[in-house]
Design a protein around this nucleic acid. Structure first.
Length: 426
RNA sequence: GGUGGGGUGGGUGAGUGGCUUAAACCAACAGUUUGCUAAACUGUCGUACUGGAAACGGUACCGGGGGUUCGAAUCCCCCCUCCACCGCCA
C-alpha cells in the first residue's frame, strides 16, 4: 500500500507515477478521494476522542459519588450519560467505516515506479539493460527441446505427473532428480556464501501472511487454498520469508537483513495455455531459491544492485547466455517500484525464458505489514523490502538441457559438477 | 483430539470492577560525579491515531475478537497460542 502521507506531501509524484504504471484514468481520481476521505476520518477521530474523554470523566465522577454515599446523584449522572453513549457508538461506526473505505481505495493503487523505470505498456517496451552472449551455443546439428531431451535420457516424466496429480506437476527421475537436487544445493550455497541466512519456512501460510505481502486479495485465484484450515500453499518463498519481520520494529544497526530459502512454489496459473506451458516452461509446482533483503531506505537501491550481481554470477557459473531487462511501467508487478527480469536463452525453443525477477518494493509491502525501524532520531520509519529469485529451477533445467546438449550427451557446467557427481548425462 | 493451567511495556513480575494515570525491579539511553572502569545519584525509557506553530494536550491498545457495566487488565462468550498430562503417531 502506498503510504498515506504521500498523497498529501507528494501528490504530483504519486499521480505521475500512477500514470507511468498505466492505471486507468478513473483510478486517478482516487488520489483526490483518498485525501478527502482521510480528512473526514481525522475529523471523526477528533470528535470521537472528545466525547470519549468526556464520558471517561463522567464515569470517574460516578465512582466518587458512590464512594461518598451519594447514590441518587450517581444514578442521576448514569441516566444522563446514555445520550453521550449513543453518540459515541454512532461515531465509532462511522470511524471504522471511514477507515475501511480509505483502505479499500488505497489498496487499489499500485506502487509508484522509480524514476529510472521506462515508459511503456507491454513486455516489448522493456529496456534491455544488459545482454550477455558469452555462452550462446552454436550447433551444427538440429537441437532438441528440453521435453524431448528429458524423455531421451529418462530425466523427467510429464506423463507420470499427470497420473499422480495433473498437468504441470512433473516427476523427476534418476539423473534428472539428481540434477534438480544439485541445483538447489548449489543455489543455496551461493546465497549463503554471499551472506544470506538460510531459512526453511512452512509451505502453508495463513491468510494474514498472504495478505501482508500482497498475495491477497489481488491474487486469491492464483494460490492453492486448503479450505478446511484456511491455509494457502505458498506461490513463492518471498511470502514466508518477508513475513518473518511482519509487525516488527527493528534497530537501524540490524540492517541489512538478508534471508534466503529454498521452497517448492505452488501456482494455479489459471488461464495459461499453449507453448507457454509446454514442458517445464510453466508449472503448477516448481522449486525456487529466493533471496530477500530488508534494508534502510537510503541503501535499498545499492542492495538491489548487489542482488542483480548475485543472480548474474549464478548464470555465468552455469555457463548460460542471459539478458537483463529493466521492466517498463506497464509490465511491472503491482507492488514493485523497480524490477529487473533475468532471462536465459532457450536454444531449441529459440526464445528467452524468465528465470529471475529482482525487485525493490520500497515501503509498499512494509506499509501493509508494519515493518519499521528506529532511525537516528529515534523515530520509527518504514523499512524497504527487496526480493529476487536466485534462481527458479524448472526453466534453468530446461535451458541447461537445451544449451549444453552435444552429440555425446548433456554436459554439466564445471561449477555444478561437485553437486551432481557426474559430468555428463548420456 | 481430550482435560487442566498460563499469555500484562525490551525482560522479570504485581494487579479479582473505580486511589491504576499499569506498581516495583532489571536491562537500555542521557546527564552529574570520575584519571579509567565500576558504583551512586538525577532524568528519559512502548505503539498508533489525533489537536497544536510550538509548549503541551486528547484517545486507543494488558494474546485476538465480541459482550456485560456509568466504568473492564480484572466478569462472561468465542478464537489463537504456550505449558503439563492423556490419546494417536513419523
Amino acid at each position: 500500500m502506498i503510504e498515506l502521507r504521500l498523497f498529501r506531501e507528494e501528490k504530483s509524484r504519486v499521480i505521475e507515477g500512477l500514470k507511468k504504471k498505466n492505471i486507468p484514468n478513473e483510478s486517478l481520481v482516487l488520489v483526490e478521494k483518498i485525501v478527502e476521505k482521510d480528512d473526514e476520518r481525522k475529523k471523526i477521530q477528533t470528535d470521537l476522542d472528545g466525547l470519549l474523554s468526556e464520558s471517561k470523566q463522567i464515569s470517574n465522577s460516578v465512582g466518587s459519588l458512590l464512594k461518598a454515599g451519594k447514590i441518587e446523584e450517581a444514578n442521576d449522572v448514569k441516566s444522563r450519560i446514555v445520550d453521550l453513549k449513543n453518540k459515541i457508538s454512532e461515531l465509532q461506526l462511522s470511524l471504522s467505516s471511514a477507515i475501511q473505505d480509505l483502505e479499500d481505495m488505497v489498496i487499489q493503487l499500485p506502487n509508484i515506479p522509480h524514476t529510472s523505470v521506462p515508459l511503456g505498456k507491454h513486455a516489448e517496451d522493456n529496456e534491455v539493460y544488459k545482454l550477455s552472449e558469452d555462452f550462446m551455443p552454436k550447433f551444427d546439428a538440429p537441437v532438441l527441446p528440453h521435453w524431448e531431451l528429458a524423455e531421451k535420457y529418462d530425466l523427467i516424466s510429464f506423463k507420470d505427473g499427470v497420473l499422480l496429480t495433473g498437468s504441470g506437476f512433473p516427476v523427476y527421475k534418476g539423473k534428472g532428480a539428481r540434477l534438480e537436487r544439485a541445483l538447489v544445493n548449489f543455489f543455496i550455497d551461493e546465497a549463503v556464501n554471499a551472506g544470506y541466512l538460510e531459512i526453511q519456512p512452512p509451505l502453508l501460510v495463513n491468510a494474514e501472511t498472504a495478505r501482508a505481502t500482497g498475495q491477497l486479495p489481488d491474487k486469491e485465484g492464483q494460490m492453492y487454498h486448503c479450505q478446511i484450515d484456511d491455509f494457502y500453499l505458498i506461490p513463492t518463498a518471498e511470502v514466508p520469508l518477508t513475513n518473518l519481520y511482519r509487525d516488527r520494529i527493528i534497530q537501524a544497526k540490524d540492517f541489512p537483513i538478508m534471508l534466503t530459502g529454498y521452497t517448492p512454489c505452488f501456482r494455479r496459473e489459471a488461464g495459461s495455455y499453449g507453448a507457454d506451458v509446454k514442458g517445464l516452461n510453466r508449472l503448477h509446482q516448481f522449486d525456487k531459491i529466493e533471496i530477500v533483503r530488508i534494508e534502510h531506505p537510503d541503501h535499498s537501491y545499492e542492495a538491489l544492485e548487489k542482488m542483480i550481481s548475485h543472480v548474474e554470477s549464478l548464470l555465468v557459473k552455469l555457463e548460460l547466455p542471459y539478458r537483463i531487462l529493466r521492466l517498463c511501467g506497464g509490465d511491472m508487478s503491482f507492488s514493485s517500484a523497480l524490477t529487473f527480469d533475468f532471462e536465459t536463452y532457450s536454444a531449441a525453443q529459440e526464445r528467452w525464458l524468465e528465470v529471475s525477477s529482482v525487485s525493490n518494493f520500497e515501503t509498499f509491502q512494509t506499509n501493509r505489514m508494519k515493518l519499521r525501524f528506529k532511525d537516528e532520531d529515534g523515530k520509527s520509519r518504514l523499512a524497504h523490502t527487496l526480493n529476487g529469485s536466485a534462481l527458479a529451477l524448472a526453466r534453468i533445467v530446461a535451458t541447461l538441457l537445451e544449451n549444453h546438449q552435444t552429440p555425446e550427451g548433456i554436459k554439466i557446467p564445471a561449477a555444478l559438477q561437485p553437486y551432481t557427481g557426474f559430468t555428463i548425462i548420456n
